[in-house]
Amino acid sequence: MTDPMTDETAPVTEGAMMRATPVRHLAPWLVGLAVMVPLPWVAFNDYQRYLLDLILINVILAVGLNIVKGFAGQVTVGHVALMAIGAYTSAVLTTKFGAPFWFALPGAMLMTAVAGAIVGIPSFRLEGAYLALATLGLAESVRIFISATDYLGASVGYSDIPPPSLFGMPLNSFRSYYFVVMPLAVAGVYFSFCMLRSNIGRAFKALREDPLAAAASGINVRKYKSLAFIVSALYAGCAGSLAAHMSPGFLHPNSYTLVEMVTVLLMVVLGGIGHVWGGIIGAIIVTIIYDLTREYYQYQLLIFGLVIVLTVMFMPTGIGGIIDRYLVNRGFAAIRKARKDAA
């Protein structure tokens, strides 16, 4: 699903620049969508279908985190808290106010976006580890607030969240729920692609690399920092709401601890920080590994922490970065060859 215009492998020629027609731009996405439709029938059992739904929800979450962390370079560890806000908002809207899922989802996203904007405010003044601490504080207070509030089920958990229904038919099986999650995930990935490959994505990267030089290039640093936090919060809210309504429709504040944050962070780091595919590759790999190692759960955090450290040390740009590196080297080789031929 590479889009032809910014395909990094394409040689820099007039021809390559001219290939971007809207049809060719959308076609890979439609093909991708078509390929994903039969997946629930390819899966062997309900457990695999559950895993499929979970992967896609994590893809949405990781793609969102990749925007603010990978592209805009803002070290936030409050992302699971945003997911929690999305999940609980959606749960409350459906159970206490009787709103259908289709209203609760955008409601949850809106609520999370507001929270995301608030989480983003410290980023105007803080950077790196200091910003991480500030967002960690916000995140933990959200979780503790939830586990101390009876209205939200406190530490017992919030149960009986209804599945979405379409024309009176509840989508409570993992197979039918897949068709709620999948289009949203594909749309989410599509939007992130469009955004990150436009001037918005470049502005994010510029302020990650050097905020001062970005500002001197005419980029409104505060505006783009806020935008990164808000957009990534929209993704987190969407993922949260989807997680809440998935069978068995139960939420617990312990699903939003630092462990979960490390897991999401691992997805982005392993997949490739600041790579458009990063969040997707990482979400797939990490979700599968997370589930396979569930019986050794007491070692999970240790393993994930180690993988993060090793990735940062030996593969700082992640899997996506390795792919990029390969393509860049190929580009260099092509230039050398062209020079040789010319000489």
């Binding site: 436009s198 001037n199 935008l227």
Partner: peptide, 18 residues
Amino acid sequence: LVGHHCHTHYGTPSAIVG
């Protein structure tokens, strides 16, 4: 392209929906 940033005509929403 970053240097060219402020001469971009399209808005944020149209960039997001591509």
